[in-house]
């Protein structure tokens, strides 16, 4: 039972950082930026390269996150601001195109094989009957700290106030003298950093390959939409719900239903759970579980 909770928690952490990044930036740029998952992969690859070059993991991670944050701002200014002037659907397609280009860059620089961080791999410890590896613990800590800092910025600083104001009503915020463009780019930067950290922690516990981003796309979206797009911390709850659903789907023994002692649904059905939840929410409660900042869906 504890293993189940822990598995769901770890899986939600896979998604949480990037889902929060997506949600936070959505309220300001008003379109779902699909390229964000590729930013996470950039973060993982860059951190891995820096780490292999000799930098300690923490420093490599931070530098990589910083770099990705900047990259996100650059793309926002060069590409998305222009596309948003036309239509948000066009911006969505543009972000898809950008994802493809990023995938191509990864393919050319790193090749199609999966890479692993050069870290110690130790067997899991047993805590309360569940298995936990130290990388998973590190991930939990990193996620908690990043999200904590982000929440701190959002709710306790004047910058955070400006961010929330611009998210709620951009025109009014501009009228009160807030430089909405600057605030938007700050949020884009922060979300880029979060995405990069999400990618790095994911890579630490598994491997990083060019498929990492595309495989994560829909679960991350599902988590963000569930929590209510624009409600950054709601995305965390969304991630937990999605992760729990996926874990239930693959860990429940449906043997008795099919007449065998032990039978599980193939694990690759796990994403189906999250996509199905996404579709159901879009159909019946597109605003998400909580009140979202987004008035239209």
């Amino acid at each position: 039972m504890f293993q189940f909770i822990f598995d769901a928690l770890i899986r939600s952490v896979d998604l949480a950082l990037i889902a929060v990044a997506l949600s936070a930036v959505y309220s300001l740029i008003k379109f779902p930026n699909v390229a964000l998952v590729q930013y996470a992969v950039v973060g993982a690859f860059v951190a891995m390269s820096l780490h292999t070059a000799g930098l300690p993991l923490l420093l490599a991670g931070l530098l990589s996150a910083f770099f990705v944050g900047l990259l996100a701002v650059v793309f926002n200014i060069l590409v998305f601001e222009r596309l948003l002037k036309v239509d948000s659907a066009i911006a969505l397609i543009g972000s898809l195109a950008l994802s493809m280009i990023l995938s191509a860059v990864f393919l050319l620089t790193y090749g199609p094989t999966a890479y692993r961080f050069k870290l110690e791999v130790t067997p899991a410890m047993r805590v309360l009957g569940a298995r936990i590896t130290d990388h998973q613990i590190t991930t939990l800590i990193v996620t908690a700290i990043s999200l904590g800092l982000f929440a701190l910025i959002l709710f306790r600083t004047s910058l955070g106030r400006e961010m929330r104001a611009t998210a709620t009503n951009g025109v009014l915020a501009a009228a009160t003298g807030i430089d909405t463009r600057r605030v938007t780019n700050v949020v884009v930067f922060l979300s880029g950093m979060l995405a990069a950290l999400g990618g790095i922690t994911l890579a630490m516990r598994g491997s990083v390959s060019i498929d990492l981003g595309t495989n994560m796309l829909l679960p991350v979206f599902a988590a963000a939409i569930l929590g209510g797009l624009g409600n950054a911390l709601g995305a965390v709850v969304g991630a937990i719900v999605i992760a729990a659903a996926e874990t239930v789907v693959t860990n429940t023994n449906v043997g008795p239903l099919v007449g065998e002692d032990l039978y599980f649904l193939p694990a690759s059905y796990a994403p189906v759970a999250s996509f199905a939840i996404l579709v159901i929410f879009l159909l019946f409660r597109p605003r998400g579980l909580f009140v979202s900042e987004v008035s239209r869906v």
Binding site: P32, L282, V297
Partner: peptide, 9 residues
């Protein structure tokens, strides 16, 4: 019920 970008997703 969905606007275009959500419908796309």
């Amino acid at each position: 019920k969905l606007s275009s970008d959500y419908w796309g997703i």
